[in-house]
C-alpha cells in the first residue's frame, strides 16, 4: 500500500469490501442445492457404476452363478473375500467344486472392482446399497450366498470355462454403454 495515498487506500479497501458483500448477498438469495438425504430416500438414485457393497445375485430358484474357483479371492488386494468350498462328486461321477460359504468383509473392502472383473461367470457384482452402518463389528462380515442356495445349472457347460482375462470380463458388463457412446460420436 506504499504507492497509494492514505485516502486512496481507504477508498480501494471499501470498494473491494463492498464488492465482496454484494457477492455474498447475491448468493444469499440464490436457490439452495441441498439434497435432503433421509427425506429423499425414495428418489435417491445412483448410477450403476457406483460401488457400495458386493453382492451375489440369486435367481428366484435360489441359485447363484459362483463355481467357487477362488479367482476373486486371489484378485483381492487385501483379503476381504474368503471363499470356502468343498469337493463333491456329482451324479455322473465327476468331481466338482462346490461353494459352501462366500464371506465378504465390507469393512475391509476397498471397492477396487478387481474381484468383479476377475469373475469369469459374472457371479458377483457391486450394488448401490450404501446404508451399511452397524453397531457390531462382526456384522460387517457378510455371507453373500444365501442359505441353501446352489449353483445355477446351465443346459450346456460354458465353452469358456477357463478363466478369462480380467480385461475381457469388463466389456461384457459395459457393452451397451460402449456401443452407445461410439455411435453418438460418429
Amino acid at each position: 500500500m506504499n504507492n497509494k495515498s492514505y485516502l486512496g487506500g481507504i477508498i480501494e479497501a471499501v470498494k473491494s469490501l463492498s464488492i465482496g458483500m454484494k457477492t455474498s448477498l447475491k448468493v444469499f438469495f440464490e436457490k439452495h442445492e441441498t439434497e435432503q438425504y433421509p427425506e429423499n430416500r425414495s428418489t435417491l438414485h445412483f448410477s450403476d457404476r457406483n460401488r457400495f457393497c458386493l453382492e451375489m445375485p440369486h435367481n428366484d430358484k435360489n441359485e447363484h452363478k459362483c463355481i467357487a474357483c477362488g479367482l476373486c479371492q486371489m484378485a483381492c488386494p487385501n483379503d476381504s473375500i474368503t471363499v470356502t468350498s468343498e469337493m463333491v462328486t456329482t451324479e455322473d461321477g465327476k468331481k466338482k467344486r462346490q461353494l459352501v460359504k462366500y464371506e465378504y468383509n465390507i469393512g475391509q473392502c476397498m471397492f477396487c472392482n478387481l474381484c468383479v472383473q476377475a469373475c469369469p461367470h459374472g457371479a458377483i457384482r457391486f450394488n448401490q446399497e450404501f446404508e451399511n452402518a452397524v453397531f457390531d463389528k462382526n456384522k460387517l462380515l457378510m455371507q453373500l450366498n444365501q442359505p441353501g442356495s446352489k449353483v445355477e445349472e446351465k443346459p450346456k457347460p460354458a465353452p469358456a470355462a477357463k478363466p478369462a482375462a480380467p480385461a475381457a470380463a469388463a466389456p461384457k458388463a459395459e457393452a451397451p454403454a460402449t456401443t452407445e457412446t461410439t455411435k453418438k460420436e460418429e
Binding site: 476397498m110 472392482n113 480385461a167 459395459e174 454403454a177 457412446t181
Partner: peptide
C-alpha cells in the same frame, strides 16, 4: 466412475469403464 474421491478408474492398458454418453 462410480466413485467420488477414489475412482479406481485407470487400469493397465486402458480405463475401467468407457465414458457415458
Amino acid at each position: 466412475f462410480g466413485g467420488r474421491l477414489i475412482m479406481n478408474y485407470n487400469t493397465i492398458g486402458g480405463v475401467m469403464y468407457d465414458i457415458l454418453p
